[in-house]
Amino acid sequence: MKRHFRELSVACALGVLLLLLALFAPNFFDAQPLLSRLTAAAPKLVLACGVALVIISRQIDISIGSLFAVCTTCAGLVAAAKLPLPVAILASLGVGALGGALNGLLVAGLKLQSIVVTLATMVTMRYALLLSQQGVLINLPPGAQWFGLPMTAGQFTVCGIALALLVLLAFGTKHLAAGRFIYAVGSDSEAARLAGIRPQLTTFWVFVFMGALCGLAAVMNMVQSPQADPNGGRGLELEAIAAAVVGGVAVSGGRGNLWGVLAGLLLLACISPALTYAGVKPYWEKAIQGAIILLAVVADGVRNRKKRN
């Protein structure tokens, strides 16, 4: 109980928010708009889970927004070339993994700081994409949208993929040795080395996995519209990191839980509709998100300080 205090408090905050919405704005829970909201949030959940793993291993990745756009473009181009959709999906995953491997190589192989490495790859990839695509939207063949399913079924599929991934990852980080290695490396990489774990290798694979998740999120996002947008994904890295941090993933590494990340993401995602219903102008959304991030960080800081004393 005590161990999950942080996650539970976020879940409680989310519960209160949902309760208030239910009381004052019951039509928030109307099926179709709610499903649309969840579908829009699903790719972000995938990214947030990935970045949570990165932060747990005591690294950071701010290139995921750019990588997301690169993957979207690749998948879009492949799909537009009339190749079957699975090929497009594979292309997206592959390119994502490749981009992640580049980050991982620089961070784990050359032992550079992940913040500057991913800053550099973020800028490079974004502008390379702009250069090659000129920001032109890619028209997708009709079979691509919603995986060729009716819209509602497609929305369920997208949400289902995100949920399945979350369950899988939550299970993996808890019950698979590889998942525990991530926590071990983030908690104390020297102790991990003594226990026979290879910290650099673990870090490398975490970045590769993060990249592949970018590819997955890109596909999940692309199928929601008739066109693939090579300009997308701006600021996604911040949303994902915010969800992870609010959800209780400690930036000092080694701590965090993917269910907490889900709670954090939903909390942040519910703010803007809640504001709308409360009559607050939606322009406050970003400020409130920032304040919530700071609140979460400060809460962790104060807690750590108390523990030290």
Partner: peptide, 25 residues
């Protein structure tokens, strides 16, 4: 609070920009 600068300024980056947006609607 001895918080890491990276995450603190990530938060204030969002906060300050958000305030700017809020003020200008």
């Amino acid at each position: 609070l001895r918080l890491p600068p990276l995450i603190v300024t990530l938060g204030t980056m969002s906060l300050f920009r958000g305030l700017a947006e809020a003020i200008t609607q």
